[in-house]
């Protein structure tokens, strides 16, 4: 791939990451990591820097959603408590479980829930 094509791909991909994250309210991280890898960052840096890309997206998108009336303080508080506690447990469990098994399980769950959302 030559330099110009790559630059165009990275720029187009960046807009796409924002569009997808804003429209779906998340999921941009999974797309930002390969995009950063494409622009020359190694794996660890891609994962860490993806947060830098996602954070402003989240702040901007959240502001637009809140302004449109999609906000409930009590629900947000409950969700934050759950997510933070779960995040700590998840990070601690990461090295203790079989990553292949977990990866396949979550992938199948995503596909199953996805199908349910489309059908119902």
């Amino acid at each position: 791939m030559n330099g110009k094509t790559k630059t165009m791909l990275v720029c187009g991909g960046s807009v796409a990451v924002g569009l997808v994250s804003g429209f779906f309210g998340g999921g941009g991280g999974m797309l930002a990591v390969p995009l950063l890898a494409l622009s020359g960052l190694d794996q660890k840096r891609s994962h860490a820097t993806a947060l830098l890309v996602i954070l402003p997206i989240c702040i901007i998108s959240a502001s637009i959603y809140i302004a449109a009336g999609f906000f409930d303080g009590q629900i947000v508080l409950c969700a934050c408590i759950g997510v933070v506690l779960g995040g700590i447990v998840g990070a601690a469990l990461l090295n203790k479980l079989n990553p292949t098994l977990i990866g396949i399980m979550f992938a199948l769950m995503m596909i199953g829930i996805g199908i349910k959302l489309v059908i119902v």
């Binding site: 960046s14 994250s21 804003g22 779906f24 020359g40 960052l41 820097t49 998108s61």
Partner: peptide, 24 residues
């Protein structure tokens, strides 16, 4: 692990995309 300089354009373009996506 966070790389600032090389990623400014990505951050800015993604933020613009986010505005469009959210309104959509």
């Amino acid at each position: 692990y966070v790389t600032f300089g090389k990623t400014v354009h990505i951050v800015v373009l993604a933020a613009i995309g986010a505005v469009g996506g959210s309104f959509l």
